[in-house]
């Protein structure tokens, strides 16, 4: 039998994979993909807890998170294109103008 804890552990593992991707990768597109992994891990938590509580609210929040993810992807990829046009690279190490 599968309990709520199983789903929460799976979600935590997926979220950690996403954070590892943000920390370890040196490619702006892969970093955005890692953020999508994290958003999906949170979605899994919402759906699992909604199933546990017996309400549709978890699925509705998932729906809104997907909308926000779409908006985030559109703006993030536009920023990536603008940055690539300036420096011809996708490495975040090339964009340190504001670094103190």
């Amino acid at each position: 039998m599968v309990s709520l804890n199983h789903y929460l552990v799976l979600s935590g593992i997926l979220f950690s994979i996403g954070t590892a991707g943000v920390f370890l990768r040196r490619n702006l597109i892969t970093i955005l993909l890692s953020i999508e992994i994290m958003l999906n891990a949170v979605n899994l938590t919402f759906v699992a807890v909604g199933r546990y509580l017996g309400t549709v609210d978890g699925q509705i929040i998932t729906f809104f998170v997907m909308t926000v993810a779409a908006a985030e992807a559109a703006v993030g990829l536009a920023l990536v294109i603008a940055l690539f046009r300036h420096r011809e690279t996708l490495s975040p190490d090339a964009f340190t103008l504001l670094k103190w």
């Binding site: 039998m1 599968v2 309990s3 709520l4 804890n5 929460l8 552990v9 935590g12 593992i13 979220f15 950690s16 994979i17 954070t19 590892a20 920390f23 199933r51 546990y52 017996g54």
Partner: peptide
Amino acid sequence: LSVLLAGEVVWGLSRLGLTWFG
């Protein structure tokens, strides 16, 4: 830090009792 985060989540959830779906 990422591995620690995963370990922390798994450790914390394993200390709770299992919660079953209705």
